[in-house]
Design a protein around this nucleic acid. Structure first.
Length: 257
DNA sequence: ATGGTCGCATGGCGA
């Protein structure tokens, strides 16, 4: 089973790119974040000719929004409003006995200080709520994907020292994320298959030449529970260079029985 | 220290 996660940054504007990705990569399941649309306005029917007849969505006007598009039917669609914040940041489904959680974590502003920056405080509290949720779950086959808005390792950013005092790579949020990962017994599947080297899944729009400057961050993740096996994981960097791209590239993982 | 670019919706806000 091939699973892809992609922060799409407007699902309506980029539905042709989604079509192209599905056509080229033929994943079984695609998890999207930052759809920026109410569910009713999302053209899911466009993907049906490619065999993607199944979808779930927790939409929101203008901001956030998560969706799942699949070839395989699924059940137990669940949307959890962590912190009761009324923001569409989580969607889970069950496929072949595996629960897939699709997340869009809060970005958290710029300054990694909860006293100076309310958005950062919200981000940390959100992570802690997610951690609590998975502690209460019984251990079954699970996959967690999405834009977690944190690049945890030194090689997950273009310059570790320069970014250490900025949100997405600060020590405090990395500790929160690692705590959540460890207490939930998750495995970072991308790093399992690519243990060393600089890898990014996001490059800012503000760079004149994103490829040349390569000031990226690995914000998008795929985690498996320890009872699932993977055969590969990689980032589709070339998609960041498509016409009218998202600022994020898709991340792929291959699951084996 | 600042500005740089997007998307949504049409004025700023969020990223």
């Amino acid at each position: 089973m091939k699973i892809i996660t992609w922060n799409i940054n407007s699902i309506r504007l980029r539905s042709p790119l989604i079509y192209k990705l599905l056509e080229q990569e033929t994943p079984d399941i695609l998890c999207l974040q930052e759809c920026k649309s109410i569910s009713e306005n999302i053209p899911f029917n466009v993907f049906k000719p490619l065999g993607y007849s199944h979808y779930a969505s927790w939409g929101q006007k203008s901001y956030n929004g998560v969706a799942i598009i699949s070839k395989v039917p699924f059940l137990n669609i669940e949307k959890i409003d962590f912190l009761n914040c009324n923001e569409s940041r989580h969607l889970s489904v069950e496929i072949n006995g595996i629960t897939i959680h699709n997340f869009y974590f809060p970005a958290g502003g710029d300054i990694p200080n909860v006293n100076l920056n309310k958005k950062f405080d919200f981000k940390l509290k959100y992570i802690k709520e997610v951690e609590k949720y998975f502690k209460l779950q019984k251990l079954n086959k699970s996959i967690l994907v999405g834009d977690l808005n944190i690049a945890p390792e030194e090689d997950d950013v273009w310059d570790h020292k320069k970014l250490s005092n900025l949100v997405s790579h600060s020590k405090i949020e990395i500790n929160y994320l690692n705590g959540m990962k460890e207490s939930g017994n998750w495995v970072d599947i991308f790093r399992k298959h690519n243990p060393s080297g600089k890898y990014f899944s996001w490059w800012s729009y503000r760079s004149k030449n994103w490829q040349l400057s390569n000031k990226g961050r690995r914000l998008d993740h795929i985690w498996f529970s320890k009872n699932l096996k993977s055969s590969n994981s990689y980032i589709l960097k070339e998609v960041r260079g498509w016409d009218k791209p998202s600022d994020h590239a898709p991340v792929v993982a291959e699951l084996i029985k």
